[in-house]
């Protein structure tokens, strides 16, 4: 019988490494009277098989629903020609919903790709909605910069979250959320102000920014603790 020289435990034949310490175990020929019976199958991963099956069922059902909705809308459009714009808006939105479902069901395995996918679908949706009437009014000036801004902020949040996810989440998640919302407010006001007045004068977003960033700094400061000197001073002055 093979043994692990490090752990001193007996092992099965044909095992490559000790299951406890991963020490390599040399191949030993089986004894004559030994019958080797596999204890476990080479296991398949049930998660991917079963979940993919369920996901496909959901996606297939929703796709049929969406296809039916598009067909119904196109039929209505061909019969009643009073509100073609409204029906075009609906068709575009329903098709975009199909892409959103595709992404939200997790067919793109990577979270970063999924977020990028949602951004691209939103971009295409807003572009199509803006171009329905034949004129481009707000896509390049408002929609595209806002989508890019939101994507960048989400990526920044995820980057920071991944760096600190093993630390105290009650501190880091709110802090990073505060910072994300603060940056979003400033970015939004910049875009809106620039498009309206061709210049940037921050007002409300500055208030939001200062409050939220102060809260984030306070939380992070409390987590990383105050410098010893300041702590000592507070103790001295406020002791009871």
């Amino acid at each position: 019988m093979p043994y692990c020289p490090r752990c001193g435990v007996e092992l099965d034949y044909h095992i490559k490494n000790c299951p406890l310490c991963q020490f390599p175990i040399p191949e030993i020929p089986e004894e004559n009277n030994h019958i080797n019976v596999e204890k476990f199958p080479r296991p398949e991963n049930k998660y991917f098989e079963e979940i993919l099956k369920v996901k496909n069922q959901i996606f297939f059902t929703l796709s049929i629903l969406i296809l039916s909705a598009v067909l119904v809308l196109m039929t209505i459009n061909s019969i009643i020609e009073t509100h073609p714009l409204a029906i075009n808006y609906s068709i575009i939105s329903v098709i975009a919903a199909w892409f959103y479902i595709l992404i939200l069901l997790g067919y793109l395995s990577n979270l970063y790709y999924s977020i990028l996918g949602i951004g691209i679908v939103t971009g295409c949706l807003t572009l199509a909605l803006d171009s329905v009437d034949g004129k481009m009014n707000w896509f390049f000036t408002y929609a595209l910069p806002i989508i890019i801004l939101v994507l960048l902020i989400i990526y920044l949040f995820l980057y920071l979250y991944n760096r600190s996810k093993l630390l105290n989440q009650f501190i880091f998640i709110p802090s990073y959320l505060f910072i994300a919302v603060a940056l979003l407010s400033v970015g939004l006001e910049c875009i809106l102000d620039f498009q309206a007045n061709q210049s940037i004068h921050l007002s409300w977003s500055l208030i939001v920014f200062i409050i939220l960033v102060s809260l984030a700094v306070l939380l992070l400061g409390l987590y990383y603790k105050l410098p010893e000197m300041i702590k000592e001073k507070i103790k001295r002055k406020l002791h009871i």
């Binding site: 019988m1 692990c4 752990c7 001193g8 435990v9 007996e10 092992l11 099965d12 000790c18 299951p19 406890l20 310490c21 991963q22 204890k39 476990f40 080479r42 296991p43």
Partner: peptide, 26 residues
Amino acid sequence: NTEIEKIFFRKIRKMNIPVKIETNRE
């Protein structure tokens, strides 16, 4: 990670009790 299993079964081995290990890990 198999650190806990390793310490546990090594403790039994140190009592001079034989241990045979089986696993479904590859």
